[in-house]
Amino acid sequence: MTGEALIVLENVNKWFGPLHVLQDVDLSVARGEVVVVIGPSGSGKSTLCRAINRLEPINSGTIIFDGQPLPAEGRALARLRSEVGMVFQSFNLFAHKTILQNVMLGPIKVRKEKAAVVRDRAMSLLERVGIANQADKYPAQLSGGQQQRVAIARALAMQPKALLFDEPTSALDPEMVGEVLDVMTSLAKEGMTMVVVTHEMGFARHAADRVVFMADGQLVEQAAPEEFFANPRSDRAKDFLSKILTH
């Protein structure tokens, strides 16, 4: 990946009380690049992901998105967030709105687009993730895998410059993981810039341009997936991989 950097983190530090969850993290994500962040629980991967659109404010360092430092809370930040889609572990679809309304809310309220235009786009996105026939249902009536695909469609409806995935399959039954990963893989192939925090090593192997391994709040190593899985350099990564790949 040689494109210019879309997301740049420099010297990012974050504490939760005495806990130093992000320690001098430097990371740069190029346009169109798919970066998969893996690592043991509590290593700070989710915090890193959430820091990029400032759902988690950082204590020091800088985060630059598309050439602009993250603004403080307010309208400018809201505008930036509208350009960075986010998919959560627990889906977080708006419980009181239908599937279609979930997908349409952002473009209509944030971008002030015309409802008819948004509806067409929303329906074609739902078509794409395979849920168009459920458009008038409420989130609670859908399975987890379906809800997560709607959540991806909702993020895509804003036509974001990048997508953040915070453990998108961790709350799913095993049989539903595949349908979500399929959607994510096709997005990756189309050149969407993605930062994906996940435990799905299969996805990391075949869809990632780069694997980033985190442990104890530090970015321990990063490499192309083939290289990382075949020859992890750090002991910490070797240990991690031996634990998850042996069974």
């Binding site: 309208r75 967030r81 959560f88 809310l105 309220k109 944030v110 909702r154």
Partner: peptide
């Protein structure tokens, strides 16, 4: 209301007022 609802709204770029009006208060 689960905090994830407001987070999802913020991540879409809704402002504080929009978040309250369209997502949090109706629930």
């Amino acid at each position: 209301v689960s905090p994830g609802q407001a987070e999802a709204a913020r991540s879409l770029g809704l402002t504080f007022g929009q978040n309250l009006r369209y997502v949090v208060l109706p629930q």
